[in-house]
C-alpha cells in the first residue's frame, strides 16, 4: 500500500509526457519527483510548470508588466518626482511637459507621482484584499472539505448567504457602514470575495479525500493533520494559485470601482479609480487626467490576468 504518490513516482499515462504527481488515478501533486526521460534524473512538477510558464509569451508579457508595475508602485516613495500629497495650485491643469511627464491635475499634483502612488494603492489593495479573502475563505473551505457533516453544512449555508448578496452592492453597503479608507476597503473587498476561494478549496478536498492514496494513508493510521498537510493541501494548491492570481486583478478593479463611485479611498491618498472618476468633468479639455490612470488600471488588469492565465495553463494537470 502506498501513501499517496509521495513515496514513489508513477509512470506516465501518456508517452513522452512527464510523470504525473499523483496516486494511481493520476491526481496531480506538485511536490512529486518526476523522472526526466531525457536527462534520466527526476524533476519536480514545479520545474515543469515553470518551464511551461516561461514558454508562454502572453504570460511572460504579463509577468513583465506586473513586475514593472510592482516596482513602479511600491518604489514610488523613491522613484516618484514628488510626494502624492504635494500640490502647487499655481501649476494646476498642465499637460505633459518635461517638468511634469504626465502633466498635473486640477489642484497642481504632479500626475506621474499620483499615478505611481495610485498604482501602489491598487496593488496594495489587490494583494491585501486577496490575503484577507484567503484568510477567511481557505480555512472555511478546508474545514468544510475536510470534516464534512455539520461543518460543511454550516459553511455552505454561509456561502449561500454571501452569494445571495450582489457583490458590488454588498461592498457599497459595507463601505457606507465602515467609511472610506485603505484599510476599510481592503477589509470590505476581502470579506466580499472569499466565497470563490472557499468553494474551490472545499471542492478540491472533496475530490481528493476520496482518492485512493488518501484512503491508504488513513488506513495506515495517518492523522487527519498529516493527511491534510501532506496529501490534501499540496495537491489542492495548484488550482488555488491560479484562482488567487486571478482574484488579485478582480480586487484591484473592485477598489477602482468603489473609488470611482466615491466611497473608496479619500484624497489625498491617490486611487486610480478615483482619479478616473475625477477626470470625467475635465476629460474634454484635459485628456491626460483620464488617460493615464485608465491606462494604469488597464495594464494592472492585463498583467495580472495574463500571469493568472499562464499559471492556469502551466499548472493544468492535463498538460502534464
Amino acid at each position: 500500500m502506498r501513501d499517496g504518490a509521495a513515496i514513489e513516482p508513477v509512470s506516465m499515462d501518456r508517452p513522452g509526457a512527464p510523470g504525473v504527481a499523483a496516486g494511481g488515478d493520476g491526481a496531480p501533486g506538485i511536490a512529486l519527483a518526476i523522472p526526466d526521460r531525457r536527462m534520466g534524473e527526476p524533476r519536480s512538477v514545479a520545474y515543469y510548470a515553470g518551464k511551461r510558464f516561461l514558454r508562454q509569451r502572453l504570460a511572460m508579457v504579463g509577468l513583465v508588466i506586473t513586475l514593472f508595475l510592482i516596482i513602479l508602485g511600491f518604489g514610488a516613495p523613491l522613484l516618484a518626482p514628488t510626494g502624492y500629497a504635494e500640490a502647487d495650485l499655481m501649476s494646476a491643469n498642465q499637460f505633459p511637459t518635461r517638468e511634469h511627464l504626465l502633466g498635473t491635475d486640477t489642484i497642481g499634483h504632479d500626475f506621474l507621482s499620483r499615478v505611481m502612488y495610485g498604482t501602489r494603492t491598487s496593488l496594495m489593495v489587490g494583494f491585501a484584499a486577496v490575503a484577507v479573502a484567503c484568510l477567511v475563505g481557505l480555512p472555511l473551505g478546508l474545514a468544510a472539505g475536510l470534516y464534512g457533516g455539520w461543518v460543511d453544512f454550516a459553511v455552505m449555508r454561509l456561502v449561500e448567504v454571501m452569494t445571495a448578496f450582489p457583490g458590488l452592492l454588498f461592498a457599497i453597503f459595507l463601505m457606507t457602514v465602515v467609511g472610506a479608507g485603505v484599510g476599510n476597503i481592503i477589509l470590505v473587498i476581502g470579506i466580499t470575495s472569499w466565497v470563490t476561494l472557499c468553494r474551490l478549496m472545499r471542492a478540491q478536498l472533496l475530490l481528493l479525500r476520496e482518492q485512493e492514496y488518501v484512503v491508504a494513508a488513513r488506513g495506515i493510521g495517518a492523522s487527519e493533520w498529516t493527511i491534510a498537510t501532506r496529501h490534501l493541501l499540496p495537491n489542492a494548491i495548484a488550482p488555488l494559485i491560479v484562482s488567487v492570481s486571478l482574484a488579485i486583478p478582480i480586487a484591484i478593479f473592485a477598489e477602482a470601482g468603489l473609488s470611482y463611485l466615491g466611497i473608496g479611498i479619500n484624497e489625498p491618498t491617490p486611487s486610480l479609480g478615483k482619479m478616473v472618476a475625477d477626470s470625467a468633468p475635465y476629460i474634454r479639455v484635459y485628456w491626460h487626467l483620464g488617460l493615464f490612470p485608465t491606462l494604469a488600471i488597464a495594464l494592472i488588469m492585463l498583467g495580472f490576468t495574463f500571469v493568472g492565465d499562464g499559471l492556469r495553463d502551466a499548472l493544468d494537470p492535463r498538460q502534464i
Binding site: S91, N93, Q94, F95, P96, T97
Partner: peptide, 8 residues
C-alpha cells in the same frame, strides 16, 4: 502639447 495650459 508641451506648453503650460492656462487652466479652465
Amino acid at each position: 502639447q508641451t506648453s503650460r495650459d492656462p487652466g479652465p
